[in-house]
Each structure stands twice: as structure tokens, then as C-alpha cells.
Design a protein around this nucleic acid. Structure first.
Length: 219
DNA sequence: ACATTAAGTGATT
DNA sequence: AATCACTTAATGT
């Protein structure tokens, strides 16, 4: 995780990706106040208990958001994609400033960090910022409900397949660099169970298996 | 050649 | 679906 300076390429990316969402004035304010960071795949961006000082806006890449218990067992909540922001930070603005989730870079990503003290100002000042914040909050809530549904109503077989499809979507790649162990950890089950399910998906011709890698053939 | 790590599988609960 | 126990396969040193 490293800080980078704004340059033309980043400004262009900001303009391109957000011009249909944000006004010129807001984009200028983001450019003025936002700090840029780059993270590499696998980097932990925020961990449990970390104090939030910035609201992250994903400029490029993908991030996975995980819950963790005392023993270190994880559960994937959802993925964030370009243009998304973290709902945890928003709840932090309303009181508790400690993160209750862990965020890990799913792939190399670029993030704009907005200082939290801008949040309340901007919500009053820019209607487009206000919509963005509330829309993001509601989108994250929907995703959370979706993950509760899959946890409560889907069997492991379906959950694994959904996981693969989601992962494929955020990486825009049908080839996934992932181990059985990692999937097991994200879905909070054992490696053996994942291996068996993946094997049966392979027999159905829906995926191809390799070491440290698998390919989704049908979706 | 050897160690380490990932993945496959039968048996049991 | 989870766990154990063991095997096989791939990869690094």
C-alpha cells in the first residue's frame, strides 16, 4: 500500500469514471482533497479495529470485504468494484469509528481517500455527493442481504458457484487465481469440502481445475 | 533429491 | 457438511 501523487493519468481516470455521476465542482473538490493510494493484490487495506480517517472511493480495481471472528475464521461479505465505496466508513461518520470488517485488495487497485471531515460538508454542499453516499449505502445493504440469503438458503454447492461467478465478475476474468483453501476461508468452510464441490463442478463441465488456478467455463 | 504446499479421496460422524 | 487420515501431484530449494 503506497501513496502516489496525482498526475494527469489519474485525473483523467477520475474524470472518465465519475463525470456521469459527479458535477465538475465535486470532481474538483475530490481532486483537491482526496489522497491517492495504490494497493497490490492481497494487501490488507483496513483491518478489524482500525480507526477510520478516510472514506475510500475505488478509482480502479476490486476489493473484498470480510468479517472475522476471534479465532481468525473469515467470511466474505461482498466485493467492491470501481466507483464503489465502503459502507463501514459511512457508519463510522455517525459515531463508532472502529472498523468491524477487514478489507483486502482482490486485485491491484487505486483508491481515492477522502478525509472524513469533508463528508458532512459535502453532503450539504453537493447534492450529487449526497446521492452517491446514500445510493452506495443502500447498494451495500442489498449486497449484505444477498450474502445473508446465500448463507441461510443456499447449499454449499450453490454458494461456491455464486462465489466463483462473483469473483469472475469483479476480476473481469474467467480464469481465477485462487486456491481451494482460500475459497474455503472466504466461505467459512473446510478445504476438503471445497475440493469435493469443485471436483463435482468440473465433472459437470462447468469449470476446469489447475493448481492455484481455475477456469469458469460456463456461466 | 528432498521439503513444502496444493489438491484428491475413502471412511466416519 | 465436517473431520481425519492418507495419497498424489506440483513446485521451490
Amino acid at each position: 500500500m503506497k501513496n502516489v501523487d496525482w498526475n494527469e493519468a489519474y485525473e483523467n481516470a477520475l474524470n472518465e469514471r465519475f463525470s456521469f455521476l459527479f458535477t465538475k465542482e465535486l470532481i474538483a473538490a475530490i481532486r483537491e482533497n482526496g489522497k491517492l493510494i495504490e494497493v497490490a493484490e492481497g494487501d490488507i487495506i483496513m483491518d478489524l479495529g482500525d480507526t477510520m480517517q478516510f472514506m475510500p472511493v475505488l478509482l480502479d480495481g476490486a476489493i473484498k470485504v470480510l468479517r472475522e471472528d476471534e479465532e481468525g475464521d473469515e467470511l466474505l461479505l461482498y466485493f467492491l468494484e470501481t466507483g464503489d465505496t465502503c459502507a463501514m466508513t459511512m457508519s463510522c461518520c455517525m459515531g463508532d469509528r472502529k472498523s468491524k470488517v477487514r478489507t483486502v485488495a482482490e486485485r491491484d487497485s487505486k483508491i481515492i481517500m477522502i478525509p472524513l471531515d469533508k463528508m458532512s460538508d459535502w453532503i450539504q454542499e453537493f447534492t450529487d455527493w449526497r446521492s452517491f453516499v446514500f445510493d452506495s449505502y443502500s447498494a451495500r445493504l442489498s449486497e449484505l442481504l444477498e450474502s445473508i440469503d446465500s448463507l441461510a438458503f443456499m447449499n454449499m454447492h450453490e454458494r461456491v458457484y455464486k462465489y466463483l461467478k462473483d469473483k469472475m465478475m469483479v476480476n473481469s476474468n474467467a480464469e481465477l487465481n485462487v486456491t481451494h483453501r482460500e475459497i474455503a476461508s472466504d466461505l467459512h468452510t473446510s478445504r476438503v469440502v471445497i475440493s469435493r464441490i469443485l471436483k463435482s463442478l468440473e465433472r459437470e463441465g462447468r469449470i476446469a481445475l489447475h493448481r492455484n488456478r481455475l477456469e469458469v467455463l460456463e456461466w
